[in-house]
Simulated scan of single mutants.
Amino acid sequence: MIGTRGHCTQNGMKKNIQRVVPARYRFCTLWKRRVTLGLAAMIFAATSAFSNEIGDAEKGEAVFRECSECHSVGQGAKNRVGPHLNGIFGRRAAGVDGFDYSNGLTRMGKDGLVWNFDLLDRYVQNPKAFASDTRMAYKGLKDAGQRSDLLSFLRRYSDDPSNIPEAAPTAAGTDHSVDAAILAIQGDPDYGAYLSSECTSCHQLSGNNDGIPGIIGWPAEDFVVAMHAYKDKFRPHPVMQMMAGRLSNEEIAALAAYFEAARP
């Protein structure tokens, strides 16, 4: 037990008294103070580490020179071979009016995909793994540091960069190159046909692209890369992530072989 000092009046005179406080309350108070201080320190440390994850915009400007053959950014930027990149952060995929996007990116935009650091990082890392039918011929930027620098540079040209969350985006995703041993698996098209019923409940055997992409006649390697991108959660589509996650490498190869050979 410990005491805290106070005063009371008795017969017109003040006397010092000691108010008794249970020790467990004192312990709780000290514990709360220590937890508060600990949380403050953690938040400060996390904030410092977080802010350091964004790349160097000056270096990113140099990286962008390779992109500038097709894209423009800054004052007066216009669509070229690729869309202009002003305001790319926080913009819906396929969101630039008047630009002819691929079906895949257009669908992603209609599904509500909005570009943030994470998604842009994945797309720049491996455009074809992110959106199979992308018209961007660029093979991807594998260096995570250069991607961070590039995106830090592009972030300057969003409406209000300071308000754009740096999110877990800057936690660099894995390099999504599919292992050569997986690509080398020879799928059994008959087994693929047996497995295909779950796919064709959504993807039409006619090959139509009415809201859901057609996969009839799709090159086997593209199919395998796309399915592993979903399996590894590289592509942002919860349903496809779930479906691909249930398939083995051999089953994906079998489906790829079946759909490559299939005709409407």
Rank of each mutant, 00 (worst) to 15 (best):
Q18Y: 11
Q146F: 03
R33T: 09
A168C: 02
F44P: 00
N52R: 14
K110A: 13
Y191K: 06
I2D: 10
H71I: 13
R33L: 15
P83G: 07
A229N: 02
E53W: 06
W115I: 03
R33C: 10
Y157T: 00
S68H: 00
A23M: 05
G74L: 12
A261S: 07
M108V: 03
E251N: 04
G245F: 05
I252V: 14
Y258C: 03
N163M: 08
D190P: 00
C28S: 10
P238S: 12
R246F: 09
G38N: 04
D111C: 07
P236F: 01
K59R: 15
R92D: 07
K32P: 01
G55Y: 09
G245M: 03
C70W: 13
L183Y: 04
L255D: 05
V114C: 05
D160K: 13
L205V: 12
R34L: 14
S152Q: 01
Y25P: 04
H7L: 06
S148C: 04
L154P: 03
Q18W: 12
I17A: 11
L247T: 03
A94K: 01
C8V: 15
T170Y: 15
C67K: 01
A172K: 13
A93G: 06
G140R: 06
V114H: 05
F44A: 14
V178M: 00
I252A: 12
R65G: 11
A172D: 15
T134M: 00
E198P: 07
R246G: 13
P127Y: 05
M242I: 08
F64T: 12
R147M: 01
G245I: 02
T29C: 12
T36M: 10
I212P: 05
I88N: 02
G60S: 04
C8Q: 12
G55T: 07
A180P: 09
S162E: 10
A129V: 04
D56C: 07
M136F: 06
D175R: 01
E58I: 11
L119H: 11
N16L: 15
I88V: 15
F130A: 12
A184M: 05
Y101M: 04
R19Q: 06
A49W: 11
H7Q: 10
V81S: 03
G211V: 02
A172L: 13
R263V: 08
L119K: 08
L105D: 02
K110Y: 09
H84I: 05
S162I: 06
M227L: 09
L205F: 12
D159F: 03
N208T: 12
I212F: 11
N52A: 14
Y138K: 12
A226C: 10
P127M: 09
F153T: 01
G104I: 02
S201G: 12
R33M: 13
E198N: 08
D149P: 00
T174G: 14
V114T: 12
S197F: 15
L150I: 01
Q186A: 13
E58N: 10
D56P: 07
M243R: 14
C202S: 00
D121M: 09
R92I: 10
R147E: 01
Q10I: 14
I252K: 03
F234Y: 14
K32L: 13
K231N: 11
M108H: 14
S206Q: 08
R33F: 10
R122I: 00
T36H: 05
